[in-house]
């Protein structure tokens, strides 16, 4: 029952996706995170929803600082790619450390993003 309840909550926030107000969405996901945390079987789900909320927050910050509404709703990897493609490696590194992205994935993302924007000089140096 608990699982069902938290699952419901997992679903609901998505209904508000795309709206400029992400506050309620983040709050719902955090609530789901707490519900998952109440049982032992759902440690993974609990952590994932915690990260999800965190991601949405930092994406929101990124949108404010870059003044471009292209982050919210994309995955962690895509967020990193977008940052690098925009030439903002510092922001990308911040996301990397925040979400403990393994180096392997980081290298793939970085080279892929640099190749997409055709930044061959940076790719060479890297």
């Amino acid at each position: 029952l608990l699982l069902k309840e938290s699952r419901e909550l997992e679903r609901n926030p998505m209904a508000s996706k795309g709206s400029p107000l992400h506050g309620p969405q983040v709050r719902l996901i955090e609530q789901a995170h707490r519900l998952f945390a109440e049982t032992k079987e759902h440690v993974f789900e609990s952590k994932a929803s915690e990260e999800h909320a965190k991601l949405l927050r930092s994406q929101h910050e990124l949108e404010v600082s870059t003044k471009q509404a292209i982050f919210v709703g994309s995955s962690v990897s895509d967020t990193i790619k977008t940052c690098i493609a925009m030439g903002n490696e510092r922001a990308a590194l911040k996301v990397k450390s925040e979400f403990k992205v393994p180096d392997k994935r980081w290298y793939w993302l970085k080279s892929c993003a640099l190749a997409t924007v055709g930044n061959w000089d940076a790719l060479e140096k890297f």
């Binding site: 699952r7 679903r11 993974f44 789900e45 994932a48 709703g73 393994p102 994935r105």
Partner: peptide, 17 residues
């Protein structure tokens, strides 16, 4: 599972379930 969620988005949680 974590790598999948990070790469493809957290909305895939019900899929994994």
């Amino acid at each position: 599972r974590r790598e999948i969620l990070h790469s493809y988005g957290f909305e895939h949680m019900p899929l994994l379930y």
